[in-house]
């Protein structure tokens, strides 16, 4: 049994909230740089140079990459041999989010009740996904999610007969409908299988995958590639103003499902695909 004081969780989450909002991971930076060279539209290329300049200013002048510093989505993968001490784990997570958003000059974008809509003023509560695994490790990932693209995400409960073609069609349809609203070029996270709620979670997790890394399943890697090609043929382009780069990546995660179902979730992320990870 390994004991971990929850204050370590608070500190890690505070730091990760700030880190994620001031700089993209190196794979995202590279994907943007590569796409800017390959973009066919002149206006599209000028938008890419604005985005690169934006990342530079964010880092040098300590201004968040985007004013929508997101709702904090926290993934906690906890080994079953870990015992948290020193108080409530959930409170520790939310304390870390509150500290990170205050100390990091990040925008407080959370309302406590979806209908009454009063801002909680510290960006809590976070959306927390716990996963219990073997061993005594703890991995924390913070993925602040902006809602320009979150609002354009979709879930489809397809029929088994719709098959691969049906899935492909829905992925492309979701991106087409998202269009300029979702701040393209996008990263497209897709979940296939599971149940209604798990499918959506798979799509969210797909956004965490290193950009450019393919699925380890050959038939899924092939589907990713085909979807990527079809999406970029839509011509939506950077900022939705036309061009050959609509998506930077398509990542698909799958899970077993029911004999009667074929759930597909498409979680769209803008070009500010933020996530930061720390192991305790």
């Amino acid at each position: 049994m390994r004991e971990i004081d929850v204050s370590l969780v608070t500190n890690a989450i505070r730091d990760l909230c700030i880190e994620a909002n001031y700089g993209l991971s190196s794979d995202m930076e590279k994907a943007l740089a590569d796409a800017s060279v390959n973009e066919e539209s002149e206006l599209g290329r000028s938008i890419f140079s604005m985005l690169e300049e934006n990342l530079k200013i964010a880092k040098e002048d300590q201004i968040p990459i985007c004013q929508d510093t997101g709702m904090a989505v926290v993934f906690l993968t906890v080994g079953q041999d870990v015992h948290f001490t020193g108080g409530s784990l959930k409170e520790a997570v939310n304390r870390g989010v509150a500290q990170g958003y205050e100390e990091g000059y990040l925008r407080k974008s959370v309302v406590g009740d979806p209908l009454i809509r009063e801002n909680t003023k510290d960006n809590t509560p976070a959306v927390i996904h716990y996963e219990i695994t073997e061993g005594d490790g703890v991995t924390i990932t913070v993925a602040p999610k902006g809602f320009g693209s979150e609002n354009m995400s979709r879930i489809f409960m397809l029929k088994p007969a719709d098959g691969r073609e049906g899935v492909l069609e829905k992925i492309v349809e979701a991106v087409k409908d998202a269009g300029p609203n979702a701040c393209p070029p996008m990263v497209v996270g897709v979940g296939i299988g599971g149940t209604f709620e798990q499918c959506a979670l798979l799509a969210k997790k797909a956004l965490l995958r290193e950009v450019g890394q393919k699925s380890s399943l050959p038939h899924i890697a092939e589907l990713e590639e085909e979807a990527f090609k079809k999406i970029n043929e839509l011509g939506i382009g950077p900022a939705g103003l036309g061009g050959s780069t609509t998506a930077l990546a398509v990542a698909i995660e799958t899970y077993a499902t029911h004999i009667a179902g074929l759930p597909v979730a498409v979680n769209i992320c803008c070009h500010v695909n933020r996530h930061a990870t720390k192991e305790l």
């Binding site: 985005l51 934006n54 300029p180 939705g240 103003l241």
Partner: peptide, 29 residues
Amino acid sequence: KGRRSDAVVESMKETGAVYFAAVGGAGAL
């Protein structure tokens, strides 16, 4: 940034207004 509804576009035509887009996700710049 992003699309507008038909009702907004009709009102813009009637009143003579313009909708500009700024680049989304370039808030620091």
